[in-house]
Amino acid sequence: FLTKYFNKQPYPTRREIEKLAASLWLWKSDIASHFSNKRKK
């Protein structure tokens, strides 16, 4: 799911990160680090 979202929006806003974190029961920092790691590849 996160990879699909990343393909659409590689630079999510803070609000989008909060929404993703809430819906996936993850920490915002986990979401942010996932996106930054994907951008590095």
Rank of each mutant, 00 (worst) to 15 (best):
R39V: 06
S29F: 02
L2S: 00
S36E: 03
E16A: 08
Y11L: 12
K38L: 06
K38Q: 05
W25N: 11
L20I: 12
S29L: 07
L2C: 01
D30M: 10
S36Q: 10
F35A: 08
K40P: 04
D30S: 05
Q9L: 07
L20Y: 13
F35G: 09
W27D: 05
K38N: 04
W25S: 14
F35Y: 05
K19S: 02
S29E: 04
P10K: 08
W27M: 11
K19P: 00
K41N: 07
Y11A: 14
R39P: 05
A21I: 07
R14G: 03
P10S: 13
D30R: 11
Y5K: 06
L26I: 08
N7E: 10
F1D: 01
K4D: 01
W25I: 11
K40T: 12
W27Q: 02
K28Y: 02
Q9T: 10
K41G: 08
A22M: 10
S23G: 06
L20R: 08
R39A: 10
P12L: 05
E16F: 15
K8S: 00
N7D: 11
N37Y: 12
F6M: 06
W25F: 07
A21Q: 03
E16G: 11
D30G: 11
W25V: 14
E18C: 05
K41M: 14
R15M: 06
S29G: 11
K8C: 00
T13M: 15
E18P: 06
K28G: 13
N37D: 07
F6K: 09
K4S: 01
N37H: 10
E18G: 08
E18R: 13
A22R: 11
P12R: 08
R14A: 01
S33Q: 11
I31P: 09
L20D: 04
L2Q: 01
I17K: 02
R14K: 10
I31W: 08
S23V: 09
F1Y: 06
T3A: 04
K41Y: 03
F35D: 07
S23D: 12
E16P: 15
F1P: 03
F6H: 01
K40Q: 02
L26M: 14
W25Q: 13
L2D: 00
L2F: 14
L24H: 02
E16Q: 11
N37S: 11
D30C: 03
T3W: 01
K28R: 06
D30H: 08
A21T: 08
P10N: 14
R39G: 06
R15V: 07
H34D: 03
I31M: 13
F35Q: 05
K28L: 15
R15D: 04
T13V: 14
K41C: 04
L24I: 13
P12D: 14
E16T: 10
T3I: 02
L2K: 01
S36Y: 03
R14V: 03
L24K: 04
W27A: 10
Y5G: 00
K8M: 01
Y5L: 04
F6T: 03
K19W: 01
R14Q: 04
N7H: 03
K38R: 09
Y11K: 14
Q9N: 12
F1W: 02
L2G: 00
Q9W: 00
R15H: 03
A21R: 11
S29T: 10
K28W: 14
A22E: 07
S36F: 10
K40L: 03
D30T: 06
A22I: 03
L26F: 13
W27I: 06
A21L: 10
I31Q: 08
I17Q: 00
Q9R: 13
K40D: 05
L26K: 15
N37M: 12
K19L: 01
R15A: 14
R15T: 12
K19F: 00
F6E: 00
S36L: 04
R39Q: 06
K28A: 15
Y11T: 14
Y11V: 13
K28H: 02
S33C: 10
K19D: 09
A21C: 09
R15K: 14
E18T: 07
T13G: 15
K4V: 00
E18S: 06
W25G: 13
W25D: 07
L2R: 01
T3S: 12
L2H: 01
K8Q: 00
L2N: 02
K4A: 01
T3N: 15
R14Y: 08
F6Q: 00
K38P: 06
A32M: 13
K8W: 00
F35I: 06
P10A: 09
Y5E: 01
R15C: 06
L26S: 13
Y11I: 13
S29V: 04
F35H: 05
F1R: 00
K8E: 01
L26V: 13
L26W: 13
T13R: 10
I17S: 02
A22S: 08
W27V: 10
W25E: 14
D30P: 13
A22Q: 13
D30K: 14
L24W: 08
W27F: 09
F1L: 00
N7P: 12
F6L: 07
T3H: 03
K28F: 15
A21M: 14
E18N: 06
L2A: 01
R39I: 11
L20A: 11
P12Y: 01
L2M: 07
A22V: 03
H34R: 10
K28E: 02
I17N: 01
Y11M: 13
S36V: 04
A21E: 03
E18Q: 13
E16D: 12
I17G: 07
I17R: 04
A22F: 01
D30E: 08
L24M: 15
Q9V: 04
R39C: 06
L20E: 00
I31L: 11
L20P: 08
A21Y: 07
K4M: 00
W27H: 08
S29Q: 15
A32W: 14
Y5I: 09
S23H: 09
L24T: 06
F1S: 09
I31E: 05
I17A: 08
P12T: 08
S36R: 14
K19I: 01
F6S: 01
E16I: 12
I17C: 11
D30V: 04
E18K: 15
K40M: 10
T13K: 10
I31A: 14
T3D: 04
F1C: 00
K19E: 05
L2T: 01
A32Q: 07
A32G: 10
N7R: 07
R14L: 08
R39H: 05
N7S: 09
K4T: 00
A32T: 10
P12C: 02
N37C: 12
R14W: 04
S33P: 12
Q9G: 08
P10I: 09
I31C: 10
A22G: 10
K41Q: 15
I31S: 07
W25A: 13
D30F: 05
Q9S: 08
N37F: 11
L24P: 04
E18I: 01
W27C: 06
A21V: 08
S29Y: 03
L26G: 14
T3R: 08
S33W: 07
K4L: 00
S29H: 14
K40C: 09
K8F: 00
A21D: 02
A22Y: 04
N7C: 02
H34L: 11
L20C: 14
P10W: 13
S36P: 10
R15E: 11
E18D: 09
A32S: 06
N37L: 13
I17M: 15
K8D: 03
T13Y: 14
P12G: 14
K41P: 06
S33N: 04
A32E: 02
L20M: 15
P12F: 03
I31G: 08
F6C: 05
K38M: 09
F1N: 08
A21P: 04
R14D: 00
S29C: 06
S23N: 10
S23L: 06
W25R: 15
Q9F: 05
L26T: 12
F35N: 06
F35T: 05
P10V: 13
K41I: 04
F6P: 00
T3Y: 01
L24Q: 01
H34I: 13
S33T: 10
F1G: 01
F6A: 05
H34N: 09
S36W: 06
Y11F: 06
K40R: 07
W25T: 14
A32P: 03
D30A: 05
P10M: 04
E16M: 11
F6W: 09
L2Y: 05
I31K: 04
L24A: 11
K41H: 06
L2I: 04
K4G: 00
S33E: 07
L20K: 13
K38G: 09
K38F: 04
Y5N: 02
